[in-house]
Nucleic acid binder design. Structure first.
Length: 231
DNA sequence: TCATTAAGTATGC
DNA sequence: GCATACTTAATGA
């Protein structure tokens, strides 16, 4: 297999403080893999034998309830670590990771986790930042679920998607991966019908524009007001 | 206020 | 032309 280029990692926060030789050593132990659209990288409950870094594409991290319904826990954007069960002292993955687009990821065997965190302080601090950010987002979402009306939750979810993955297009900012109303309902604890109605209403009033699996936010400010954010 | 049911249209492989 | 995505209305908890 061809050698991976060092530039893949040099600009990413977990590695940016490392020198060339260190990055080389890390890359030489990594396995790159491409994942098809809608394929799973790993499954909930599966033995956590590797941890990952997403180089390209977008992932949905999904938990399935005993009743079989899916809940989208979070999305992963390029440059982020995922499947970091070892940081949680776990030996199985707590959720399933699905490719929302065709994706490319590096992975390492878990036995390297300790080596990385011990030898590369920036890697360790960055993983704790990542965990902290995800924990924070989950806490906000739990609070929203318990206290906010559906419209606010959906508005807040769209804003989060846009801030994490938005790309500029003419007339607004587009969520960078295909997303259905069903997906959004799985993030917000409602039904696809309610999401559909909300998006239709927002489209009529010029806040969003949407086509099948694509959503462009054309008026982020008004969406922010709908989310109930305090000025 | 929102989920559910139901019945329809649109879209893309 | 079929499955999937999406829309809309009606009903009732």
């Amino acid at each position: 297999m061809a050698q991976l280029d060092e530039s893949l990692l040099t600009d990413l926060p977990p590695f940016s403080a490392l020198d060339r030789a260190q990055i080389r050593a890390i890359l030489d132990q990594a396995t790159p893999k491409r994942y098809d659209h809608e394929s799973a990288i790993f499954h909930e409950g599966q033995d956590a034998d590797r941890f990952f870094l997403l180089l390209d594409g977008y992932l949905r991290v999904i938990r399935t309830t005993p009743e079989g319904e899916q809940i989208i826990a979070l999305h992963i954007s390029p440059g982020q670590l995922f499947g970091i069960a070892p940081a949680l002292q776990r030996d199985t993955y707590p959720a399933t990771a699905m490719a929302a687009t065709e994706s490319l990821a590096l992975s390492w065997p878990v036995r390297l986790w300790e080596e990385f965190t011990q030898n590369y302080p920036s890697f360790a601090t960055e993983t704790y930042k990542t965990l902290g950010a995800r924990l924070g987002e989950m806490q906000t979402r739990i609070t929203e679920l318990a206290t906010q009306a559906v419209e606010r939750r959906v508005a807040a979810a769209l804003l989060r998607l846009v801030s994490q993955s938005g790309r500029k297009v003419d007339g607004g900012v587009e969520i960078a991966f295909p997303i259905t109303r069903q997906n959004i309902s799985e993030m917000t604890g409602t039904t696809l019908h309610t999401v559909s109605r909300l998006l239709s209403a927002w489209e009529k009033s010029g806040i969003v524009k949407s086509a099948r699996k694509r959503i462009v936010v054309t008026d982020p400010h008004r969406l922010l007001l709908l989310s109930g954010a305090q000025s």
